[in-house]
């Protein structure tokens, strides 16, 4: 964030921790294609009922193409969340009130709430949680070499890389 050259791309993120507790489990599907839109889709009406269990894994079709799938379990020690950013200003106002206790010294011995800037401060919250998901490949089961399986190994490596190294 701090290295961003472009001022419009800079944000200060606030995670709404209460949403993590309340996030209901969701069934997720990771498709081998990109839908060039972000919008709700009737997955339960169109996609889920079309899934078939074959001898060697799951099968479904999307837009007339065969997808083969399998379940991927989120590695132990990690939790999956579907995060959404709040766009609305009233959320920020709400956040301001909630975070009244978070204060900073204004240099004159008085404290005031940290000001929030519209367009700079953003709130994200979890809308759902998951501990497994369906991974789909175009006509073939993604298998152990799937990119996302590799991606799931990053948090452990990152923790090791960023862990403080003892002096001696």
């Amino acid at each position: 964030m701090e290295s961003g050259e472009d001022a419009t791309g800079r944000h200060r993120l606030h995670l709404r921790p209460d949403t993590l507790r309340d996030a209901a489990p969701a069934t997720l599907h990771l498709l081998p294609c990109e839908v060039l839109a972000s919008r709700p889709a009737p997955v339960e009406r169109f996609f889920t009922p079309a899934i078939r269990q074959r001898a060697d894994g799951l099968e479904v079709s999307f837009r007339g193409r065969t997808l083969r799938g399998e379940e991927v379990v989120v590695p132990p020690g990690l939790a999956g969340y579907v995060m959404e950013a709040d766009e609305k200003a009233e959320v920020l106002t709400g956040l301001g009130r909630k975070h009244k206790s978070r204060v900073e010294d204004d240099g004159e011995g008085q404290t005031r709430p940290e000001p929030l800037e519209r367009g700079f401060d953003r709130c994200i919250g979890a809308t759902a949680s998951f501990d497994r998901f369906h991974l789909w490949g175009l006509e073939t089961i993604p298998g152990p070499d799937a990119k996302v399986r590799g991606a799931l190994t990053w948090p452990r490596l990152a923790a090791a890389v960023h862990a403080p190294v003892p002096e001696d």
Binding site: V35, R39, A41, P42, F46, R63, G64, R65
Partner: peptide, 14 residues
């Protein structure tokens, strides 16, 4: 037409 899924499987997408 369904904007994300296209059509029901009754339709030949090809």
């Amino acid at each position: 037409v369904e904007p994300v899924f296209g059509f029901p499987q009754f339709v030949r997408f090809s």
